[in-house]
Design a protein around this nucleic acid. Structure first.
Lengths: 344, 344
DNA sequence: AAACATTTGGGAAACGTTACCCACTCCGAT
DNA sequence: ATCGGAGTGGGTAACGTTTCCCAAATGTTT
């Protein structure tokens, strides 16, 4: 009749079993100062004999929960998977556990997830490409150590990791211009929240595109379709661009997913890539690399971004008063089969 | 000089501000029985004036954390994104928050994530396509309400939601046979953990394939390449199949991601789809629907699966002694451009 | 041998919430 | 009048840890 409700083993059970105080067990758990090797051994043995696991809620009430929260805006974007890999790789082996706050569309949902994580006593937060107003991010970071990924701009309360989107956009423009293109259009993500406009990667990419075009003397070829960073947005943006009196000979999509939609629209228009029109994306996701697509794309080194974010967060948890850091990583261009010289 | 360390508002602050007891506040928070409308109003006002948010750790210590943990094995598989959408859609609007336990490769990593969620006092767990031994799942479910998604087989401790993979495989085989194919090969995921073999969807799909082939009198055409459910696995599996003395005229890939890899190998062999060879996948992911690919695939209704899992979990949290349920959803076939009659 | 520092172990009070109980008021029914 | 029950509100002890202290034991210097 072991119908007992199977109470979970607590630190008290361990202490009793090892014939020491709960304080001693706690110290061993945290390898705190002031425990003899003998005590260590005794307690560790009791822990493993009983299969004890500390209760995170109880720990959280007194201090840390050993949990890091990651806000992930779009689980479908394979680029974020890349970032996540880098991130978890860096956290694995530490005493921390990563938990993800999923899918938020819109600023309200994002705020809800972030606060849910704070409520749950997360020791640190990594916010991937948040759309919240900057002031809100500052407020969050004042509450809990925070690293913001993918937003440009300098803060004194949180660390940032971002790709150098200005350079990335220039890589694409220069590549296309070198191939002989002059009318290179761009599909951008339209920013709905103006107060963080200058910080968003999409805005920077668009700006980088404009600057690079002008630098190459192609100011006349500047042509921007303003939609969103989604497949749908790419489809609509490309449709719009293809309807121009003089059609662009190349499209720089602000994200791979946008390029996917654009490819769709191009096929629908009966044009072929890259013979009739070249297209390039941004993010170098798995699907850009996928052979039937073979999309020319900018590689952001998502893995590195994630690893850096994790490192910064661990550092900040260790020392909250450390001055903030801004890591900017250089992208590279991966040329594949969707870009070629323009039709003669 | 507001350099105060900004202590978080607690239930005590709310009680003091509303001039009531903490018990009363707690009751309002949980809409417990025995609070007058006047009390309700008073407390709610105090809560919003102070911007109070309950501390989940403290709650967890006494009872529930209002958190549901979802174990997601592979963040890159867009099918899981679908499931997640259905799931969060069903949870949104309740008092619960969903947190994801990310990417685990291998049984050990999976167990680690699951236990991390239990340690953190999750009120319920949804395990998506777990690879753990059945006994382990039973042990987990004894500790916390659990729903297992994508595993077949009946349990008395956890609820299950799964697709009818037997039928799904038959749909593909019959479709291809109707088109005139006789040599229909299959790429399966090789099961490394034999103790749960019969429960895994991949095994069921392979079995469904065999049965359907025999049922159509195509037993001679049965040909299975055993790799893994990854793009790489699809590539290798297809390469293997294409090297056969008599080449199959159609390939049924056990998952869309496998079909992606297979398409790659087919292109590399200089064959074209569907003229030279037909190919079908399973899962109907976003990328199967993506026009340049247009993969014929089995739709599992991931959204429904997720929604059902969430519903079952909420029910079980409400009543842990309720008998377990097994939901089995019927898949449908989505015919696109990668399947056609075999070459003459 | 005395005085002092260092190491080692434990007692007890938090942390923020909930659950269990009990007390009080106000009814209507006896 | 008395009783019983329903409706409200609050006091208090948990929940499982950590942290702050203090005490005892041990070592080290005068």
């Amino acid at each position: 009749m072991d119908e007992a409700p199977a109470r979970r083993i607590t630190i008290v059970d361990v202490a009793r079993h090892a014939q020491v105080s709960t304080t001693a067990v706690s110290k061993v758990l945290r390898n705190a100062y002031g425990v003899s090797p003998k005590m260590q051994a005794k307690v560790r043995q009791a822990i493993s004999e009983l299969g004890y696991r500390p209760n995170a809620s109880a720990r959280g009430l007194r201090g840390r929960t050993y949990t890091i929260g990651v806000m992930l805006p779009d689980i479908r974007n394979p680029f974020f998977a890349e970032v996540l890999d880098g991130l978890t790789g860096r956290i694995a082996g530490t005493e921390y556990q990563v938990l993800l706050g999923p899918g938020c569309n819109g600023e309200d949902a994002e705020a809800r997830v972030i606060h849910a994580m704070i409520d749950r006593g997360m020791d640190g937060l990594i916010l991937i490409a948040p759309i919240s107003a900057r002031a809100h991010l500052e407020r969050v970071a004042a509450l809990v150590p925070t690293v913001v990924v993918g937003r440009h701009g300098h803060s004194h309360t949180y660390d940032t990791v971002a790709d150098d989107d200005l350079t990335g956009a220039a890589l694409v423009v220069n590549h296309l211009a070198d191939l002989g293109h002059r009318r290179i259009a761009h599909i951008e993500h339209h920013e709905s929240t103006p107060d963080c406009l200058a910080e968003m990667p999409n805005a920077i990419r668009a700006e980088g595109y404009r600057r690079a075009m002008r630098a190459r003397g192609l100011a006349d070829g500047i042509d921007i379709a303003s939609t969103t960073y989604t497949q749908e947005g790419g489809y609509l943006g490309a449709k719009q661009l293809l309807a121009r009196p003089v059609r662009p000979t190349a499209i720089f999509a602000g994200a791979d997913i946008v390029a996917m939609g654009a490819l769709d629209a191009i096929a629908e228009a009966g044009l072929s890539v890259p013979t009739d029109i070249s297209i390039a994306g941004y993010d170098n996701t798995t699907f850009a690399a996928f052979r039937p697509i073979s999309l020319t794309s900018v590689d952001q080194a998502g893995h590195e971004i994630g690893a850096n974010a994790a490192r910064l967060l661990l550092d900040r948890i260790a020392d909250r008063s450390r001055p903030t850091a801004q890591v900017k990583l250089s992208p590279t261009l991966v040329v594949r089969r969707t870009t070629a010289p323009p039709p003669a």
